[in-house]
Each structure stands twice: as structure tokens, then as C-alpha cells.
Design a protein around this nucleic acid. Sequence first.
DNA 1: ATAAGTTGTTCTGAAAGAGTGAACGGTCGT
DNA 2: ACGACCGTTCACTCTTTCAGAACAACTTAT
Lengths: 253, 253
Amino acid sequence: MAEPKHPVRTVDRTLEIVEIIQELDGAGVSEIADRVDIGKSAVHNHLQTLAERDYVDKVGDEYHIGLSFLSLGAYARNQTPIHDAARSEVDKLADETDELVNLLVEKNGKGVYLYQAKGDNAVELDTYEGKDVHLHSTALGKALLGFRPTEEVDEIIDEHGLPAETSHTITDREEFHAELAEIRENRYAVDHEERIHGLRCVAAPITDNEDRSVAAVSVACPVHQLDDERFYDELPDRVRGAANVIELEFNYS
Amino acid sequence: MAEPKHPVRTVDRTLEIVEIIQELDGAGVSEIADRVDIGKSAVHNHLQTLAERDYVDKVGDEYHIGLSFLSLGAYARNQTPIHDAARSEVDKLADETDELVNLLVEKNGKGVYLYQAKGDNAVELDTYEGKDVHLHSTALGKALLGFRPTEEVDEIIDEHGLPAETSHTITDREEFHAELAEIRENRYAVDHEERIHGLRCVAAPITDNEDRSVAAVSVACPVHQLDDERFYDELPDRVRGAANVIELEFNYS
DNA sequence: ATAAGTTGTTCTGAAAGAGTGAACGGTCGT
DNA sequence: ACGACCGTTCACTCTTTCAGAACAACTTAT
């Protein structure tokens, strides 16, 4: 994935515009032009072109992300072999625990939420399908990295660092490796408000035939909503159980 | 949605490239260059630029749709108010019937699948989230159009026609309006192999406070897998029931 | 094994077209 | 009614995309 020798600047600009619209939850021409390094009229032309194909929606004077992206996004997800194998089990786990259940894969050293299912009592978070997060600050990411070779983990840390996201985030490399060693033993990972204050998660890796992780599943819940007993005893078993079922489906079918 | 006065051709070309990759289930540079009216080197530059941001994945010499689209696609869907209201009920219906359950919305006169849930016994179809279909040839589309003003239906027919997709597709305008009248009475629509041979569906509209449709839900199943009794008695009730729950959630919360 | 097809990639010149910036017509708030 | 903002349009200019040829790395055929 070397730097493009001859990047198409217009494509970059278009993607930037689209990403800005997403970030701002819809935006007008001027608002976008302020953030991207081109004038209003150029932005306007981009938006009209995108709107023509429903990649953006014009609602009054605001532009929003269009449904055409859904086709490509859902398609991309369906191409991921783990998605098919995992989906029904993730749904089931959400149903049983009543909490928010997530499926995460690794992509260029970061985590991407591939699918999520909400139980009746699920927390509302900033996570959504397709969102990317640092791997070191979530139970999901740690479960995933626990089952990758040490040198691969180091490469990822070299590239993305261990930025603190809350006061609980592990920011020391040695400490992080020690944590992964423990996760390897337990076959599950726990996140104590390491990415978001007030949120804790239990995650388990989904590994291939060589015990290398291909994804991770987690249950997320508010700190004060769940007693420690359920969190430390019941959830790990359930999450590992689900991961196991997914592994079987993934590896032997 | 007037034609853009100053379209950005590069954007159009990029979108075309991406859509071709999707259509071909992954493609190489030359293959794409053959279908779009630009040379290999230009296509190559586009792909490298897209790959840089993970909008396409390079696997060997083939390019595939990247997961970055998932973020935008899922985001677009989450912005649709009906999605939140409907999702859990669609899941439930799939669970109860063991069949394939779909949620469809209207977009510029065509239908877009917003969400689907697969029961244990669900058919495998060519439908996926984000896919667009003609409204006249599916139970979903007919249920949706049944609860739109006649002039709006006519406008849509004027724009998209009533193309035959199988020998059972309704292609006559009068006949189609009669069908809609009946659907309006029953509050559900049936599709007898009108889009795909061997497939039949039952769909119900989801309407707002003014009884205008905002979406439709359906259950799809192979003709020979389900006896008529279940198809004509049980399914319509179930589908209408689910639509009702979604309506309540949508309109009063 | 050699040759004739492929493939993807790199490079430079030349033509295409994206972007600038000013001006117009709206709509909002003061 | 005014000013300030918005989105939109247009013609000119200079950025940049694209075509085309040449190359390297494979696959297939001879």
C-alpha cells in the first residue's frame, strides 16, 4: 500500500467532502468550503455531481450522506467471510445478555466495527458499523491483538502509538504486552473504561485454524448497571461461548 | 435534482469505477479500463488514490470494495428514522417465520432495501442491503405505492415504466392501479414470481400519521417450500402485525 | 525454452477540465 | 429596509487529469 505515485487530487477532495458531511451530520456548501481547501463554487460542483447519483442527499440547503453508500458498504461487509459466520451468533448474544454486542476486525492496524446488535437494554454509544478505533483501548482490540504475533503487535504500536483516551487507557508498551499475555491465557479481554469513561466491555477473540485472530466479539455495558459478579463470571463465559460457535462456523464450513 | 450545470467529471468516473468493481465482484485495472472510457493508467491512478484511504482493497492484482464504504453506508442508514424503529421487529419476524424478511424504502421512484434479516430457513437471493429495485415488480414496492397518492404513482410509472421482469410482472398501467386498490383494502401486497421466478412474497406498508407509506416490510419465500395455507393466511397476518408495531414505534416515539 | 500474449506500473507531454473569484438572487435576522 | 449570510452561476486561467508508449513481471502457447 505504497503512497500513490500519481494521486488523483479530485478524488481525494471528493472523499474529504463526503467525510466532512458525515462528521458534521450534514452540512452546507460554505461550511464545507471552510474546511476543505477549495472554494464554494468548486464544492458546489462536487456536491451536485454526487447528488446526481444519490451519494449525497440535498435537504433544503444541507447535504447529507446518501443511501448509495449503503449498497457499497453492505457489499463490502458481506465480502468479509467472518460476517456471515458471525452475524446470527452476535444477534443471539445480544438477545441473551440484553446488552450491546460488537464484532470487530482489524484493518491496517486499527479496529473496524463490522457488525453490532443491540439487546433490549443496550447502551447508546458513539460506535457504529464501519467506525474505526484504536486497538489498544478496547477489549475487542486487545482480544484481537492477543492472538497475533508479538512483532505484528509492535509494528501496529509503532505506527499508531498507545494514545490515552481516558485515564484508564494502557499507554505503556511493556504493560500492554503483559496485558496481552494474560488475555492469551484467559482467552478473553476486559476493558475498564479504557476508551470511554463509564463503559466496560468483555471481549473474546475469534481465531483461525492456526490460532491467529481474525476478529473479536464483545459485550459492552455501563459500569454501574451490571454487578461485578455477572461481569466477571457470566459474561466472559458467554462471550467465549459465542466466539467459539463463530470459530466453528468460520473454520469448518 | 436538476442536472448538474458543471459536473465534476472525475467524480463521475471514480464512482463508475467503484460501481464496476462491485458489479464484477472485484476486478483488475485492465478489466475496468475496458468498461469505463479512460485508459489503464488513469484507472490505475484512481484506484491507488482510493486504496490509500481504504475505499478499495487491493488483493493481489484485483481490487475490491473497501470497508471505508461501510462507515458511510451504515451512517446513511442510521440517519433513516425508519431504520431504528423497524430493525428489532424485522429481526423478530425473521426469527418467527424462519424466512427472509426485508425492509424497503422509496428513493427517487425506486425501491432501496434498507435492512434484511435471515431466518434459519431463508432463501438466498440477489438482494442485499442498499440494492435498488423497481417498485412495481415486488410485493414491497406495491405495498409502498398502494399508500401513495395516485398522481405520485403515475409520476413514478412515467419515469421508470413497468418493465417485465418475469412473465408474471404486471406491465399494464390500469391493471397495476387496480392491484394497488386491492392492496389498499387488504393492507398487504402479494408478489407471485413477479420479479424472480420461483419466489413469492407478502408485504405490508408502514405508514405515517397521514396514512402515507414511508416503508414496507416483506417475507420472501420459494414457491414450493411453503403451502398456500400458510402463505395466504398466516404470513399476511404476521407481516401486517410487524408493520403495525413498527408504525407505532415510528409515529409515537 | 523461447516467444507471444497477458498483466500492472511508470513517465512525460498535451489537452481537458477543475477551480478561482466576482456577481447575482435568495432568505434570514436585526 | 438594511446588511449579512446563504447557494448558485459564469467565464477565464492554470492546475491536473489523461493518453500513449515503454517497461517489468507473469502466464500460456508453441
